[in-house]
């Protein structure tokens, strides 16, 4: 999901505070399909991605488009408003109780060499890898992907060569949201969630993206690994409830000393 955020930020330089809440909606779409129509979460993930693509497109076209030239603060506040709306409509629609999507696959575990692995986690990891790879192919091997990178690099230059920047923005936002939706569907059978989860997911993914470097795909991936390593180490050496402390401390250090992130391109957002 950090990959989705990095795409939105990288291309548009808009900070999407509603990220975690979009992911939660991806989870609920999966949950609805699973509980009402009996679709397995791993099949529903395409639908969740599609639904979130549309949501992302609507939010971008209807709202973000209008404040693109405004200062960053305005965009942050706008997305904060969207986050509040998304989180609390989920609360109204589904109630505050934790939910979980059941998958017949998720119950299984297998021995992988010496370690005991959840099939669900394995699938999630595999699909996340595949998605990152697909996104990379999209960005580096297709025309639209090239235009997207061009826009991220130099919006004015892209305009000059005739890019439809607004369309690029819309697609970037949509694809970013779709990634999040897919991530939500993948995680749905593993983690129980509730509407308030969105906020902590947003914060966690900001950690990851900042640490890895804004607008860098590789950075998002490495950042994700780093954060989980830091949290595991924190859990081992301090105590489990202090594990988030490790990632937040890491975040503060990175913010102070390398605000562009480990793999960032050095430009200040």
């Amino acid at each position: 999901m950090a990959v989705g955020l990095t795409l939105i930020f990288g291309v548009m330089r808009v900070v999407n505070f509603a990220h975690g809440d979009m992911m939660v909606w991806g989870m609920y779409v999966t949950f609805l399909l699973a509980s009402r129509a009996g679709v397995d979460p791993y099949v529903a993930f395409g639908a969740a991605a599609a639904a979130l693509f549309v949501l992302g497109l609507v939010v971008q076209r209807g709202l973000v488009d209008r404040v693109l030239d405004a200062p960053h603060e305005m965009q942050i506040l706008l997305m904060l408003g969207v986050a509040l709306i998304l989180e609390n409509t989920a609360l109204l629609a589904f109630g505050p109780e934790p939910t979980r999507a059941r998958s017949t696959l998720a119950a299984a575990t297998i021995w992988l060499g010496p370690v005991f692995v959840d099939v669900a986690r394995l699938i999630a990891f595999g699909v996340a890898l595949a998605l990152t790879a697909a996104l990379w192919l999209f960005l580096f091997r297709t025309e639209l992907g090239r235009l997207m990178r061009a826009t991220a690099d130099n919006t004015f230059g892209a305009l000059v060569i005739g890019t439809d920047v607004r369309r690029v923005y819309a697609v970037a936002f949509g694809v970013g949201a779709a990634c999040v939706g897919a991530a939500g569907a993948l995680v749905a059978p593993i983690l129980p969630w509730e509407p308030a989860t969105g906020l902590s997911l947003s914060v966690a993914s900001f950690n990851i993206v900042i640490i890895g470097g804004m607008g860098s795909l590789l950075g998002a991936f490495v950042g994700g690994l780093l954060v989980s390593v830091a949290e595991s180490l924190g859990a081992v050496f301090l105590q489990p409830s202090l594990k988030e402390l490790a990632s937040f401390s890491l975040l503060i250090l990175i913010l102070l000393f390398r605000p562009a992130g480990l793999f960032g391109n050095g430009r200040d957002g």
Binding site: A70, M74, L77, L78, L84, I85, N88, L91, L92
Partner: peptide
């Protein structure tokens, strides 16, 4: 009756409206 988040939805709508129309 379980409509706990409604005022926050309203806050969100107001926040979006203020950003767009009355910055």
């Amino acid at each position: 009756g379980g409509y706990h988040g409604l005022h926050l939805v309203a806050y969100g709508v107001l926040l979006v409206a203020v950003v767009l129309f009355l910055p």
